[in-house]
Computed example of a mutant assay.
Amino acid sequence: MMQKQMIFSRDEYDRRIRRVKEIMDRRGMELLLVTDPANMNYLTGYDGWSFYVHQGVILSLAFDHPLWFGRQQDANGARLTTWLPDACIFGYPDEYVQSRYTHTMRYVAQLLRDQGLAEKRLGLEMDGYWFSARMYLTLQEELNRAVLMDATNLVNWVKSVKSEPEIAYMRQAARICEKVMQTAIDAIAPGVREKDAAAMVSAAQIAGTDEFGGAPPAIFPIMPSAERTSTAHLTYDPDRQYRLGDVVLLELCGARHRYHAPLARTVFLGDPPDDLIKTADGVVTGLQETLQFIGPGTTAEEVEARWRAAIAHTGVVKPSRVGYSYGLNYVPDWGEHTVSLRPGDKTVLKPGMAIHFMPGIWLDTYGFECSEPVLITDNGCEKFIEFPQQLFVKH
């Protein structure tokens, strides 16, 4: 028997599954098909870079254990990283992999028939990266006596409140992020090639600290310079060198066992113009005032409204959301797709939620970012990371 490589206790996984089943039962679902790799990890511990093919976890109200299915060559990964017994791990043959002639959901449908689960009320993560229209249509065709239901983000909402063991890994990710951000700021200078700075950042993310190693985060280092900073999600220019007069945005992250700690800061090379200084001062002041407001019992939209009030006198305008919940995830996003700090989101913040407060500003020719990842506590919020909140100026 293979030696399990679990990072949480069995009790921790049992707690998560009980909570998910409670919500399934409340919504009238008897089965749940989980295809999001982060949610698979959350429920079972599975941690393989195998999500380019169909895989999933099936949770039944009638069964004590979830069922894992994936490509046969990945089955040992499930035996190594999950708490599941071998009898609950099902590997399908390669004839199903990216086939023009059949589909993996036919295998899944037969698995459900073999388990006596083919005529149940089945929840599906319909609006996610890992579930396609072809998957839905095949299940609909194969399971014509089942009731297919929308379970989008069901597990994500359970994930949004972190346990103490999860928070411990997020604190470790935060220590990694501090080193990563300092690495980036130290590396950026006029004449340095952007690709070289980005390479040092990626190396620091994996190297972690002397005490514990890191992992590549769900989002590649976002490090645009000059006019590329006027938009939100560009990376480095592989053929460019930094120059005097550059603004450089840094949206970076540390990750530990797929748990994240993101942070954004801004660097200017040379003497910053007055309008950038004014923008930076306004954003940092608004950030600090809003952090004093965030706490349990406040709603997501109240936090955004407090931010707008804090910067109203500055002339700075941010039409997009100013934050979101985050934590355990895989590419392409460390966000959880649940809480958004924006008008209309009535979510009440609870102790254990992790929020990336991200008031990024993108103007016509440049941007400015200064963010904070925080943990909602019993009486306010706690910063995960201690890093100066300022515009970093280098000559």
Score class of each variant (00 low, 15 high):
Arg306Met: 12
Val283Leu: 13
His260Pro: 10
Asp345Gln: 04
Phe51Ala: 13
Arg145Ser: 13
Lys120Met: 03
Gly91Tyr: 00
Gly45Tyr: 02
Gly315Ala: 07
Ser225Trp: 04
Gly380Phe: 15
His54Arg: 15
Asp114Cys: 06
Ile185Pro: 03
Gly70Gln: 03
Val147Glu: 07
Ser320Gly: 14
Ser230Gln: 07
Val97Asn: 09
Met200Tyr: 09
Glu227His: 14
Val158Lys: 02
Ala255Thr: 13
Leu33Cys: 08
Val248Tyr: 02
Ile385Met: 11
Glu141Val: 05
Glu302Asn: 09
Asp210Thr: 13
Gly28Asn: 07
Met6Ser: 08
Ser325Cys: 10
Ala305Asp: 11
Gly295Tyr: 00
Ala218Leu: 13
Leu349Cys: 04
Leu269Gly: 00
Thr183Ser: 10
Leu61Ala: 05
Glu142Tyr: 09
Val374Gln: 13
Gln140Val: 02
Asp36Cys: 12
Met200Asn: 12
Asn41Lys: 11
Gly48Trp: 04
Ile188Lys: 08
Ser163Tyr: 06
Gly295Arg: 03
Thr102His: 12
Met223Glu: 09
Arg16Gly: 01
Met1Thr: 15
Asp94Gly: 07
Ile23Thr: 06
Val248Asn: 05
Ser320Thr: 15
Ala309Gly: 14
Tyr13Gln: 03
Gly245His: 04
Ser225Asp: 04
Phe90Ala: 03
Arg258Asp: 00
Ala305Gly: 09
Lys318Val: 13
Thr231Met: 08
Val316Ser: 00
Pro224Leu: 04
Glu22His: 11
Ala184His: 08
Pro272Tyr: 06
Thr138Trp: 01
Lys179Thr: 08
Leu122Ile: 13
Ser60Ala: 12
Trp362Cys: 05
Ile277Glu: 07
Lys159Asp: 01
Ile17Ala: 07
Phe63His: 12
Ser325Leu: 09
Asp150Lys: 05
Ile176Asn: 04
Ser99Thr: 02
Val34Thr: 03
Lys21Pro: 01
Arg71Thr: 08
Ala215Lys: 12
